[in-house]
């Protein structure tokens, strides 16, 4: 019982970080109908950036987030303008898979050359601290990560629902033709949206480096998880990404702590399969456009 509850605590806290990564992924899909296979690589790149800032200048990874998000925002912008925009609109969904995978490989290559393939982890002074609550351990890093992810998600929510830019994004998601007729510049929205997706990857990456050891190849595991979360929640739905992340990370933590770690990775794929059989659009996805 103790192990089960401890497992749930760990799972819920970890879910925040995944929710953050997945929200960027789902946002990009919502706006552009592009499945961004480079999202995992962008998370790892951000993890390296904050690792470097921490080891060279001693900047705490949680404090360097504003810097890394801005840097990654511009990287996302550049990727959209250079690699995705030239694709013809009607082929974009299919070809973008190849293009974003190429971007992922490119980033992986750059990271391997820059930081070698040695496993890195960002070891802050509080990296191994935890609070004891009723005999259960709440790890500090995970708690910070969780709260930070909530804050970032709230920020994203406000941006989408309370600003002009957010309205333009939602309009583009719902009906790109009408949005364009009403003066929304679709290409600008796409670029900014992709940048925003990359920026959430940056915030998540800083936290990711605190939680797990990583190297340039870590993005493969990450992207398969992210895709599962996004599909489970429903492509294009940010709320769905949050729920998907919660289901994925708590179910695997519970299974790993009570049953066996060998089954834990499999559990969420079983859940995913069941959900897709019963509700092919995912938990919160809609078959029509305009889920955000």
């Amino acid at each position: 019982m103790h192990a089960l509850i401890q497992g749930i605590i760990l799972g819920v806290l970890t879910a925040g970080v995944y929710a953050l990564m997945a929200s960027g992924q789902t946002l990009i899909f919502g706006i552009m109908k592009v499945v961004n296979l480079a999202q995992g690589a962008m998370v790892i790149l951000a993890a390296y950036l904050s690792y470097q800032l921490f080891t060279t200048f001693g900047v705490d990874p949680l404090l360097s987030i504003p810097l890394t998000t801005v840097a990654m925002f511009f990287l996302g912008l550049a990727v959209e303008v250079l690699f995705l925009r030239p694709l013809r609109r009607e082929d974009r969904s299919e070809l973008s898979l190849l293009v974003t995978f190429a971007v992922a490989l490119l980033l992986e290559g750059i990271m391997s050359v820059t930081w070698k393939t040695t496993i890195r982890s960002t070891n802050t002074s509080y990296a191994n601290s935890s609070w004891t609550v009723f005999g259960y351990q709440i790890t500090l890093v995970r708690l910070w990560a969780f709260m930070l992810s909530l804050a970032a998600l709230a920020f994203l929510y406000l941006l989408l629902n309370r600003t002009r830019f957010g309205r333009a994004i939602r309009a583009t998601v719902q009906n790109p033709e009408s949005a364009r007729l009403l003066g929304v510049e679709a290409s600008r929205v796409s670029a900014l949206g992709f940048g925003l997706g990359a920026a959430t990857a940056a915030a998540a990456g800083s936290v990711y480096g605190l939680l797990y050891p990583f190297n340039s190849g870590s993005h493969y595991d990450l992207i398969s998880r992210l895709l599962s979360i996004v599909l489970l929640g429903g492509l294009g739905s940010i709320g769905g990404a949050v729920v998907g992340a919660l289901i994925v990370s708590t179910s695997s933590a519970i299974v790993a702590s009570t049953l066996s770690p060998s089954w834990s990775e499999m559990t969420f794929f079983v859940i995913l399969l069941l959900v897709l059989l019963i509700r092919p659009q995912g938990l919160f996805g809609t078959t029509a456009r305009g889920a955000i």
Binding site: G7, T14, D221, I254, A256, S257, P261, S262
Partner: peptide, 17 residues
């Protein structure tokens, strides 16, 4: 006694058990 696969990213649940 448990064997974990190499792709296990988070060992916290195992160590909690």
């Amino acid at each position: 006694k448990q064997v974990y696969p190499s792709e296990t990213q988070d060992l916290s649940p195992v160590m909690a058990a």
